[in-house]
Design a binder for these strands. Structure first.
Ligand code: FES
Ligand code: FES
Lengths: 144, 144
DNA sequence: TCAAAATAGGACAATTTTGTCCTATTTAAT
DNA sequence: ATTAAATAGGACAAAATTGTCCTATTTTGA
């Protein structure tokens, strides 16, 4: 569904949101540990998210990554997915034809678009805040 | 969503079904041309589908690939996807945790499972026959 | 000022996926 | 029988994705 990079990116963003909500800055090491992700690879992804203004990075000792509190409620999964995986999730054809196109649809077009739209809706309606709410009370997990 | 191999596999199977329905056997060359897929790579995928009893292959001159007419109506997309991509579509976690697990769910579990189940339903309820019906009348396409 | 701790970023390596090429085998037609 | 046309399958190559390593830079705090 999503690339590994995107999966790591969502998990990392969620953890950063969780920490930021408590006023804590998250270090790369912590993020990688708490999301069970490879450290250096995660670093690259965080750079990408930072360039896309989804997270903020602070260099230097006591630096790390954070998300402005007021944004946690507004950042949607769709933004993260788009920043890392691009628009394939939203525009791709289920059978791999060059872009989905209703004017020359593949045989699964109608059924596929319905599912893809549900997925888009889901991503556009799920905020980082929503992602963190179950974590705090031990209802959901970012690693096992 | 699906791997390239799987996309090619679905397109190839659909074309073979279309030809078999008219009593014609499809050659690798024709299949690759009519689905705009790389010939040798498609050959490997057809072998896989053949081993999984989804299509039949006939060696020798005038050989090719075909699907028993009575099966066209019964072969579901889910079987093709499973034969090529395995069970990741059905069991995978949206955030990449080792297998989806409702007892230790990731933060998108509930929403993701709903979409994944819709996708599964779609694949399990779409037959090759249904895939071909629009092709014959020029309503849908296997390439552009 | 200096050392330590952290991110930034370039270069590289490993793995997986995608794709090609060549030879063997099978079958039909001559 | 021989040849031609087709799939089977192994070995290999290319490309994309995933992951590592090292150095530079930034910042804090002693
Ligand atoms: S054309 Fe294939 S999904 Fe729209
Ligand atoms: S645990 Fe992640 S989707 Fe079910």
């Amino acid at each position: 569904m999503f690339s590994k990079a995107c999966e790591y990116g969502i998990r990392a963003s969620t953890y950063i949101a969780l920490q930021s909500h408590e006023g804590k800055r998250a270090s790369l090491k912590d993020i990688a540990r708490e999301t069970d992700s490879p450290v250096a690879f995660t670093a690259k992804i965080l750079q990408q998210l930072s360039k896309n203004k989804i997270i903020d990075s602070v260099q230097g000792a006591a630096g790390g990554f954070e998300i402005v509190k007021s944004k946690i409620n507004h950042i949607k999964l769709s933004e993260i997915v788009y920043a890392i995986d691009g628009d394939n999730v939203y525009m791709g054809c289920g059978l791999g034809l060059e872009k989905c196109n209703a004017n020359k649809p593949c045989p699964v077009h109608d059924k596929f678009v319905a599912i893809r739209d549900d997925l888009r809706d889901m991503l556009e309606n799920t905020t980082l805040y929503e992602m963190t709410s179950g974590l705090e009370v031990g209802l959901t997990y970012l690693k096992r």
